[in-house]
Computed example of a mutant assay.
Amino acid sequence: MEIIKDISAIETFLVRQPVLRPGKPIESCQFDGDTLETTIHFGLFIDEKLIGVVSVFNNKNTTFISPNQFQIRGMAILPKFQKRGFGQKLVNHCEEFIQNQKGNLIWFNARENAVSFYEKLHYKKIGDPFTITDIGLHYLMKKEIDYPYE
């Protein structure tokens, strides 16, 4: 059975490390803001095994003027579960959560190899690629949230 639920920051390390920080110390999985009350972490479980994680930060990027911005960070699916739609389910869950918070913009720094995944979910690249030290080439990406009935 498949379920997405809230998890702790430390629980995200079980997936962050092998996917996003392979060969690096576990401490490298701790992100600034992970333990803030405004940050939430979601885990995707299959038969009670954690196979995917993502974190949502109430974090403003000065590139954008939208007042209620949220950042997605630490999106990771264990390798043997990738390319099976689980990443999309986690992103959709984040979008629903952010809409419930009245967020009007989602942004993140996407690894070069993940850009096409996010583009399929209607995220747009902003500006030129940049390098994050020891991690690699990234693109700033965003999606605006519309509320047609307000």
Rank of each mutant, 00 (worst) to 15 (best):
L105V: 03
M75A: 12
T38S: 15
C29F: 09
Q71T: 01
S66D: 15
A76D: 06
P79L: 03
K142Y: 15
L44N: 02
G43E: 09
G127E: 04
Y123W: 12
E150M: 06
A110Y: 13
F45T: 07
I72W: 03
V53L: 02
F45R: 09
T133H: 10
K102S: 13
E119Y: 05
Q88R: 15
L36M: 04
I65Y: 05
K89C: 09
E11K: 11
H122N: 12
A76F: 06
Q69S: 04
I3N: 15
L44Q: 03
N100G: 14
F42W: 11
L140W: 08
R16C: 00
E119P: 06
I106G: 13
K125Q: 12
N100I: 06
D146K: 14
G43Y: 11
N92P: 06
I46F: 01
L137F: 01
T133C: 00
L121K: 10
N100C: 09
Q17R: 14
N113P: 01
L140M: 13
A110P: 12
A110E: 13
P22W: 04
K143Y: 08
P67H: 04
G127T: 01
R21N: 00
K89T: 11
F45E: 06
S55D: 02
G52I: 04
N61L: 02
I26E: 13
T39K: 12
I106S: 10
N68C: 02
I7E: 09
N100Q: 15
L90V: 06
L121F: 14
Y123D: 06
I46S: 03
Q101A: 11
E11S: 10
F42A: 03
L20C: 07
G136D: 05
K49W: 00
M1D: 12
M141S: 07
Q99V: 14
L36G: 02
V15C: 03
T131G: 01
T63G: 00
D32Y: 10
L90W: 14
Q88P: 03
V15Q: 04
A114K: 13
G85Q: 05
I40N: 15
F117K: 11
K60M: 02
G103C: 07
Q101R: 15
I77T: 09
T62H: 07
G52W: 11
M75I: 00
I3W: 01
E112H: 15
Y139V: 07
N113H: 14
S116G: 05
T63F: 00
F108G: 09
K24Q: 14
C29S: 13
D47Q: 13
Y147D: 00
N59Y: 11
V115W: 04
D146N: 10
Q99C: 09
M141D: 07
V53Y: 09
L36N: 11
I72M: 13
M1L: 10
I72N: 03
G103D: 10
L50W: 07
E112D: 15
